[in-house]
Design a binder for these strands. Structure first.
Lengths: 246, 246
DNA sequence: CGGGGCGGTCCCACTGAGTGGGACACACCC
DNA sequence: GGGTGTGTCCCACTCAGTGGGACCGCCCCG
């Protein structure tokens, strides 16, 4: 309890991770001084740690600051969950893309957000989500598809915080619908002008492991036509994952 | 100098990175004890560090060991060089794929290897290289395309080590050809039955920043037809990157 | 069923790795 | 010249991190 404001990291590990996350969040231009300010770590310490990380290519220095380096790219490319999902999802996504031509996503739950793991470009411009970006669980089709099948109370609670009682009731009813239909919808709740249709991918124990979504322009995409297609894709992926284990 | 054998990491940072790299290298099954053995870090220390990393989702525990977690995937997805290249290369790769239908790669230099940054699936099965994997610079078309334009002596030296004088002369002549033609070839030197054709992507200062390659089966791919196509793609990417800066 | 091998976690007294305040260097702009 | 913004380096102090070893749970085997 050296400092009252927030959690000042003390362990070396926490500090390193705090630096990495800060670099990730600030898209492009991070200086040593800036990092010191936003992490609360003394400048000389940041300088030393960043120096070491740069030397080993985990970070990189450009003319306008510190950015994520190639070594972290390499590590990330080997991440277990995304790899497993990619292998299993590829043919499913090809089929779904041929049938829709729209923007596709496969995402997993990560805290109170959904983390996109695979992303296929459709007509939408600008692209609302790429692989590696987070979207909020509460408002997105991807998130609602997973939340409906989650039995982890703590996740539901943390997602609910910030919603007034009325909004909670609306969400609960929506999740019940999702459980019945196996399809969730996001009508411009997250990105203006973008409708999303998603369906959950379940483990053999019927717990959600991921979700697949189709996203397209409100003006121009028929959500009703998408629903069976997405449901079918999610089911196909569910089966392929179950087989992969064996 | 506590221990004579190899470099026993002493700084916390080195230890963390050693653990992460070891997890990456061992595809799938890494135990705490195994990590302790291969990194030379005491078991109790590994247990603590891995515990912390797992708690923060940088690593993940599965039934058969420790694997890379979602947080590292997220960090890797934001890596600067791969992102810049992806944005610029997308249309170029689409065109090249339409013209060839073969396996494509965009890779950058990383130590004495080439690191694939983007990979497009062609006919080849199994896929020789995916995004995030390293291939040796000396034998691959990608590597030779970049080496030919490198002025960094230390890289050339480190790549040369292990080659006998004759092999060196052969390589030097090959690199001279590459400089003249802007195209390098790998005839089954790296992967049996696979030919690669690559061309360098240069910065405005004419230093190599990446390379593009086409790879296909020896039996069935006409390398001569590929050469102008790859050269054109690399040139197009060179131009697009030069514009992107402005 | 007891014993031995193996994997992982936890405890806590010790100590040197990491710290960080401050001096310093450089670059830019009044 | 002085001011303001960077980032790096130094080195005496000290507490975060360490790691040997105890301990727990699991599986296999005689």
């Amino acid at each position: 309890m050296r400092s009252a404001l927030r959690d000042e990291p003390v362990s070396v590990l926490d500090r390193i991770l705090a630096i990495l996350e800060t670099v990730r969040e600030s898209h492009g231009s991070t200086t040593i001084t800036g990092l010191a300010l936003s992490t609360g770590i003394p400048k000389s310490t940041v300088s030393r740690l960043v120096g070491d990380l740069v030397r080993q290519h985990y970070l990189m220095r450009t003319e306008d600051g510190v950015v994520i380096g190639l070594r972290l790219f390499e590590l990330g490319a080997r991440a277990s969950t995304p790899r497993r999902l990619s292998v299993a999802a590829l043919p499913v996504l090809v089929e779904l893309f041929n049938a829709t031509g729209e923007h596709l996503n496969v995402a997993v739950q990560e805290g109170r957000d959904m983390l996109s793991v695979i992303s296929v470009r459709g007509r939408l411009r600008p692209v609302p989500s790429r692989a590696g970006v987070r979207v909020p669980s509460v408002t997105t089709a991807l998130g609602k598809a997973v939340l409906a099948f989650t039995d982890d109370e703590s996740v539901l609670c943390s997602v609910m915080t910030g919603l007034d009682p009325h909004q909670r009731r609306v969400l609960e009813r929506e999740l019940a619908m999702v459980r019945a239909e196996s399809v969730a919808i996001d009508r411009c709740e997250t990105f203006a002008g973008v409708v999303g249709v998603a369906s959950p991918v379940l483990s053999p124990e019927r717990l959600p492991v991921a979700a697949i979504s189709v996203a397209g322009p409100v003006t121009d995409m028929d959500a009703n036509r998408m629903m069976p297609l997405v449901r079918h894709a999610a089911l196909a992926l569910t089966h392929r994952l179950a087989l992969q284990v064996a």
